[in-house]
Simulated assay, not measured.
Amino acid sequence: MDVNIEMLNDEIRKNRYTITDLANKSGVDKSTISRLLDGRSCSVSTAQKIVVALNITPQKAGLIFFGDKLQ
């Protein structure tokens, strides 16, 4: 799935997380998060873990991880 990197970065900043913080909170490998922020896609499982760690609403999660598919 394609990811809206700008929106995801905004959520990471709002939580005042580093990539390492997000990796620790979500249980997702740091390198996976780095690749995601470089424009690579991710699995639904990875997205779900990140959504929970960042406490993102379902609506915002949809825009971040499925935005182009929802329009």
Rank of each mutant, 00 (worst) to 15 (best):
M1G: 15
M1A: 15
M1Y: 12
M1W: 11
D2V: 11
D2P: 11
V3G: 08
V3L: 06
N4V: 06
N4A: 06
N4W: 10
I5F: 13
E6W: 00
E6D: 07
E6G: 04
E6R: 03
M7V: 03
L8F: 02
N9S: 02
D10P: 00
D10M: 00
D10V: 00
E11W: 01
E11M: 07
I12G: 15
I12S: 14
I12L: 15
I12A: 14
I12R: 15
K14R: 15
R16H: 13
Y17V: 12
Y17I: 12
Y17E: 10
Y17P: 12
Y17T: 10
T18D: 05
T18V: 01
I19M: 06
I19Y: 12
T20L: 08
T20P: 02
D21F: 14
D21S: 13
A23Y: 05
N24W: 03
K25H: 14
K25W: 13
K25C: 12
K25Y: 15
K25Q: 15
K25S: 14
S26H: 15
S26L: 13
S26A: 15
V28D: 02
V28H: 02
D29N: 06
D29A: 01
K30F: 13
S31W: 10
T32D: 11
T32Q: 12
T32H: 09
I33P: 05
S34N: 07
S34A: 06
R35N: 12
L36V: 14
L36C: 13
L36A: 14
L36N: 14
L37V: 04
L37E: 04
D38C: 11
D38H: 12
D38K: 13
G39L: 14
R40K: 11
S41F: 09
S41N: 13
C42R: 03
S43T: 15
V44G: 08
S45D: 08
S45E: 07
S45C: 01
S45G: 01
S45Q: 04
T46F: 10
T46R: 04
T46W: 08
T46K: 07
A47Y: 10
A47P: 09
A47N: 09
Q48C: 00
Q48Y: 04
Q48H: 02
Q48S: 09
K49R: 14
I50S: 00
V51D: 00
V52F: 10
V52N: 12
V52Q: 09
V52D: 09
A53W: 03
L54E: 03
L54S: 04
L54P: 06
N55E: 08
N55G: 01
N55C: 03
N55Q: 04
N55F: 01
I56H: 06
T57Y: 08
P58M: 07
P58W: 03
P58E: 01
P58S: 09
Q59L: 04
K60V: 12
A61E: 07
A61P: 08
A61N: 05
A61R: 07
A61F: 05
A61L: 10
A61I: 06
L63P: 02
L63I: 03
L63A: 04
L63R: 09
I64P: 00
I64Q: 01
F65Y: 09
F65C: 02
F65Q: 01
F65I: 08
F66S: 00
D68R: 13
D68K: 13
K69R: 10
K69Q: 11
K69C: 03
L70E: 07
Q71P: 00
Q71H: 05
Q71W: 02
Q71R: 04
